[in-house]
Computed example of a mutant assay.
Amino acid sequence: MADLDALRTRWSHALVGSRGTRAPDLPDPAPYADDLLARWSEPQRRYHTPDHLTAVLDHVDLLAGAAADPDLVRLAAWFHDAVYRPDRSKNEERSARLAERALPEAGLSAAATAEVARLVRLTLTHAPAGDDPNGQVLCDADLAILASPDHAYAAYTAAVRQEYAFVPADAFHEGRAAILRQLLELPRLFHTPYGAKEWEGPARRNLTGELALLTG
């Protein structure tokens, strides 16, 4: 179970760090953290939960040295699945729009807000440009689950299936296999030096193994 108090503290540190030298009479960060945690705790979620948020933040911390603006990447991690309905499309776009509404009110500059929203939208494709260190860190942190040990990867795939329990098995297998093929066809899954070295090989093995199970 994720430590919600620890997550609230991490939110406050990232938000305050991203505000820069703006005026001190700014809103309390706590209500924004509570709103986001309520979203991440919605009942339709099985994988995209506070545990996933914690893992992504942990991986951002691990990769922070490769980012241009680590605190903005952390804020983007908070928002990247803040809107998540597996029965609907455009979750990333809706999450980005939520960031665009909330962050200026919380005290972020227009430029910082735009960067967070851009990063959230990037998680639709996980294809950051070569000169986009913030995007590379967020995308690698989000996909790091793919390089998990066998038991953790099995738990991840089972949780994803639970989120799509309303989809018949044949249709789910077909759709999931298509996603796995798309990922495996990418020239690289990870873009930071650490991700490329430590996660690329294990992730490709996991994806290949899952695809074999789905396709028989």
Rank of each mutant, 00 (worst) to 15 (best):
T208A: 14
D71P: 02
R94D: 03
G65T: 12
A144G: 01
A77H: 00
R8S: 14
R181G: 01
E200K: 13
R22T: 13
F79V: 12
L37V: 13
R88C: 10
L103T: 01
L103Y: 03
A68M: 11
A112W: 02
E115P: 15
D131Y: 06
T192N: 00
H48V: 10
L183W: 07
E100F: 02
A55E: 07
P50G: 03
Y32S: 14
V60E: 03
E105M: 03
E200M: 11
R22P: 05
R39Y: 00
A6R: 03
R118M: 04
P86C: 06
L213A: 14
M1N: 12
P133W: 12
S89F: 08
P187V: 03
S18T: 01
L15Q: 00
R161T: 07
P149G: 14
I179P: 08
R188V: 02
D87W: 13
A117F: 09
L75E: 09
P149L: 04
T215L: 15
T125C: 12
V167C: 09
A2I: 04
Q44T: 08
A165W: 09
R85S: 13
L36K: 03
D140G: 06
H151A: 15
P24K: 02
A106I: 11
R10I: 09
E42T: 03
R85N: 14
D132A: 07
P104R: 02
H80R: 01
R45S: 07
R85T: 10
D25C: 15
L108Y: 03
E42M: 09
